[in-house]
Amino acid sequence: MREFLSNPILVKELRERFRTKRTVWILALYLLIMGGIPLGFLLINPLRAGTLGENSELFLISAAIHYAMICFVAPALTAGAISGERERQTLNILLTTQLSPRTIVWSKLVTSLAFTSLLLAASMPLYSLVMLYGSVSPEQVVKLVLFFAVNILFLGSLGLFCSTWIKRTAVSTITAYGIAFCFVVGTGLLFFFLGEILQQVDPDRYSHLVVWNLPELQILAGLNPVIVLFAILDESLMPSVEFAFTPWLFFDSCYLGLSVLFVLWSGYLLRPVRRRWWSWKKHPVRVQ
């Protein structure tokens, strides 16, 4: 733990990030948006004793906006992590230190995630207000927080991967958003279109009730964060899917795996000289 806290990149990045006014402004703006929505909802639907615990709309809206904010913030914070070093011409110097590319990558990821997690944690108290409106169990809130955490990790590692892979921060950010769009919207559209096409091609075999519960389409649905988010909230999107597995668990496992893959791949791409590790001796030998 001590070694973790004394990691020079963590110390430097946290120093740099939390010294700027921009950080305070981002946090303030985020809380303003996240707090403004429940407040607006309160104005429209004032709390009444009789309706307490029966209206889950606010929870749904808050969760959806929370997720949208995560999609917006998480890739942006990491998409410049490595390419920014490259543009600032500090990357080569960093690579000649004793920090391994993998250490650089995960340290950058941790510092970026720390800020996104701060945004998430700072907005969590708003859910106490949301929960007054009800129809939400503490278990759902826990699942939701876990779902958000996995999404932050995934989108962060995706941004980091793009930042390592692409030299320019602007291009890297756009690419990260593009790939994130494919996961968030693309999987949903693919799920929907495939289901509709199958129904039209062979309506007898793939009826409306059968097609959406095909294992392949269920996997596709389980990979779509929007469908999984609605499943966590016990809401259903058109068309309804009766999952044969626990969707949030499937989603979290898959996206955790993808995150690890992105981090390892980034570490490999960052190596100045990429090589097969087994081809050379592990221990330095001084040539006399």
Binding site: K12, R15, E16, R19, T20, R88, Q89, T90, T96
Partner: peptide
């Protein structure tokens, strides 16, 4: 190693 062009970190 000191490269021909190198940058510095802001806010440090």
């Amino acid at each position: 190693y000191m490269p021909d062009f190198f940058g510095v970190y802001d806010n440090l």
